[in-house]
Design a protein around this nucleic acid. Structure first.
Lengths: 202, 202
DNA sequence: ATCCTAACTGAACACTTGTAACTGTACGGC
DNA sequence: GCCGTACAGTTACAAGTGTTCAGTTAGGAT
């Protein structure tokens, strides 16, 4: 329980940011366990890092700032994963599929973090505008499919919204009731790609 | 702020359960405001009812029991609304549509409660098995569409799951970022009914 | 008028929380 | 040798939490 890290030594002069990185890292872990940003306590973060509770305030103004910074970190990681997955193919359809599947695999690897990113009250604050990047990249991928003719022409933004909603719903249902046994997510996502976007069946 | 109800008088002899109903009612209101069952405090409930904090324990063993009872109440209300809506038509397609639309309108009327019902950690407990009733009723409605020939035959359970996921996703996205302006939910649900279930376009 | 008991209350325990104010400590330059 | 400063820890406070326990009231039966 008392996941007290080894008594950390002080950082050398120029590297005061090292503690900052450790704090964000610990916060990522805690948020993933908790699945709720409101349940995160500064003291728990400090305990996990092995530092004094007040030392967190040297790098983050308050709890909200810490959560926000951590979620931004999280978001960048998710975006990078999506971009990397899409880079594996030249086919726009495969790129869209890869991009969407990343959401599924990422949510399985970091269930709590996925929940915090999508359900937390922080999303209602303007500082989390970065979240729209994921939406925009999906819309762009859908549009490329239409332009390439692998998907019927249409309102890319609306189609992308339908796809995002469906995929998020599929993921969210699985996260909220993990004790049930769900049919494979990948097949469900493929159905969404076929029926909502109009990609050819695999 | 101090939503202190009028100093309530004691209930007559046989009607001790009246306080129980008032407590559940207050809890419904608080959970809808908070959108998170972990943020609910027994003292806040007591304040809202206008009673002593300890009196809550006369009717509920602990906080979890109170939340569970409240969610069960909530669920019954949702099911009744869906059944009533479906009773308005004889066409299985219209019945399915009405049933699904109820989820949308209910979520708009009780955003916080919808979130608690779908996102709360209580869902991972076996006592919330009643949640599957909503899923089952949707599956049955889909199957009736297939049997009546208004939807192409197929795996009703799988189709219903796709539909539920999509609708829940559409609702959840809107709830988690209400500051964005979303296209109409009804039209989106109709697209889902057409493309995922195969109902004729309206 | 008495008593029983259902219905309810107040005070208290043993915490946890965010955060401000203060107090060190060791390293690099002088 | 000295000292400023970047980096950190200690102490403390006021507020809040779930829950328990020992009462206290009042309505109905005797």
């Amino acid at each position: 329980m008392g996941t007290q890290a080894s008594p950390r030594g002080r950082n050398p002069r120029g590297q005061g940011d090292r503690l900052r990185a450790e704090i964000i890292d610990a916060t990522l872990g805690l948020l993933d366990e908790l699945g709720d940003d409101q349940a995160l306590s500064m003291r728990a973060v400090a305990r996990a890092v092995g530092t004094a509770a007040t030392s967190v305030y040297l790098h983050f103004a308050d709890r909200d700032a810490l959560v926000l910074a951590t979620l931004r970190h999280c978001h960048d990681d998710l975006m990078r994963a999506a971009d990397e997955a899409a880079a594996g193919s030249d086919d726009p359809a495969e790129q869209l599929r890869a991009r969407v599947l990343v959401l599924g695999t990422w949510s399985r690897r970091h269930p709590g973090l996925y929940r915090v990113m999508h359900e937390s009250a922080v999303n209602r604050r303007p500082e989390t505008a970065f979240r729209s990047e994921v939406a925009d990249s999906t819309t762009a991928a859908v549009r490329r499919c239409m332009d390439a003719g692998v998907a019927p022409a249409g309102d890319a933004q609306l189609v992308a919204l339908d796809l995002r909603a469906a995929v998020h719903g599929a993921v969210a249902l699985r996260l909220s009731q993990p004790q049930l046994d769900w049919p494979p997510l990948t097949a469900q996502i493929d159905r969404f790609l076929t029926r909502l976007v109009g990609l050819p069946a695999r």
